[in-house]
Design a protein around this nucleic acid. Structure first.
Ligand SMILES: [Mn+2]
Ligand SMILES: [Mn+2]
Ligand SMILES: [Mn+2]
Ligand SMILES: [Mn+2]
Lengths: 218, 218
DNA sequence: AATTATATTTAGACAAGACTAAAAATTTAT
DNA sequence: ATAAATTTTTAGTCTTGTCTAAATATAATT
């Protein structure tokens, strides 16, 4: 078993590898965890000794298969707990992340197995992110940023790129929730804003919003 | 907010105060937490500075009102989680304690409030122990050890004194569960064993068993 | 009341995880 | 190819929580 801190580093590296392939830099990890590079160097040595990552000085780190599986399991727990909080305890999707950051460290295989079953074996969390299975595999769904859609294209809203409270609350206010159909009516060349239609409503959204929403094209 | 370790010390003192009134000794705490007396002395100074306990050298410690409320809240969380695990996730009553020891440290008032509501505002945990309310108060139920019942007296089984897995599994095996009516048919002077009747079954149990079962006399 | 035994505290050390400041390696720019 | 800028590592310190061994206080015996 690993400490909370070790688990948080693993998870950070796991997420960074999804975004930028291999050789995650010390600074990237430090930035993600809001800590100092020197602290990262220390921890990275520890994780390396435990065979969770490959680390060579000045070369960045890469998760081993063992590390990847361990990290995926933490992400699995995080996302299952997020589903629980929304589905069973009436949390809104912008309130769950911080609590899940704590719950993801609870050690009990039976707990997660039973929670998974209790929730009906969900495949995605409240933000549309896939939940890794017991082996750590996750099925990747074809998705596009709303900002890449062309005029008159449409698709289902299936996830968010930014899951900060502010952004999620903004989406709530606009009535943009997962599962809804969005159609691009106009693209404005000047500022890349979009005029969209969603559930009979028409309004325009900025490029920044559009590049934080994932769409499954129809 | 307090660290896991601080919370564990608080909880230990809280439980010890239920058993032996005031002035909890360093050694008693050390024994309960399976740690060394010198570690207790260190922590006790910290808790005292934080106004959670009253501590005078060589005099033992006593919870302040603040400390009592804080400790009761941890116990509240522990017991609510135990109910959740048994009622919703199909854990048996001998499997929940260790997981609850972890879950009790999750910090989120909303989580506990919603969990309480989700569970239907339970008043007792799976072992028959009362769940403190938000203010830390718990209603004490009149209860007697089965070993104190006289011949031909009977009552409802409402709790356990020892909640180790071994004991709980033994009770399961014998069909002794909370809510069942138990009648004392015979008391054996020689070894203080009891012949009891429970749900049409008659069998004898040792003094040790009888002094770890709480009964509500009828 | 003095002695012995027990309980408690102090002193000093250690591991984990973090930080600052300085040194070394690597990358970028000239 | 050198110099400058950036990244990464090292060295040393700090806090939390633990431990052992030694010192001191309290309690129990004779
Ligand atoms: Mn999250
Ligand atoms: Mn999520
Ligand atoms: Mn328990
Ligand atoms: Mn219990």
């Amino acid at each position: 078993m690993f400490t909370f801190s070790e688990e948080n580093y693993l998870k950070a590296i796991y997420h960074l590898e999804r975004d930028f392939i291999k050789g995650i830099s010390t600074n990237a990890i430090a930035k993600k965890l809001e800590t100092k590079a020197s602290s990262v160097t220390d921890m990275v040595k520890k994780l390396s000794e435990k065979k969770l990552i490959i680390y060579k000085k000045y070369q960045g780190v890469t998760l081993t298969d063992f590390g990847k599986k361990t990290a995926a399991n933490i992400v699995r727990k995080h996302r299952l707990w997020e589903v629980f909080l929304v589905e069973k305890l009436n949390f809104s999707w912008d309130e769950v992340h911080d609590v899940a950051e704590q719950l993801e460290h609870i050690k009990s295989p039976k707990l997660i197995q039973q929670l998974d079953s209790f929730l009906g074996f969900p495949t995605h969390d409240p933000h549309g992110d896939p939940i890794p299975d017991k082996e750590g595999n996750l099925k990747i769904i074809e998705k596009s940023l709303l900002s890449t859609l062309l005029k008159n294209e449409s698709g289902i809203c299936i996830g968010v790129n930014d899951s900060s409270s502010e952004f999620l609350q903004f989406l709530d206010k606009k009535g943009i929730t997962l599962g809804k159909l969005i159609t691009v009516l106009e693209k404005e060349d000047f500022d890349d804003s979009l005029l969209i239609k969603i559930a009979q409503q028409k309004f325009s959204i900025s490029k920044k919003i559009a590049s934080n929403l994932y769409i499954q094209k129809q």
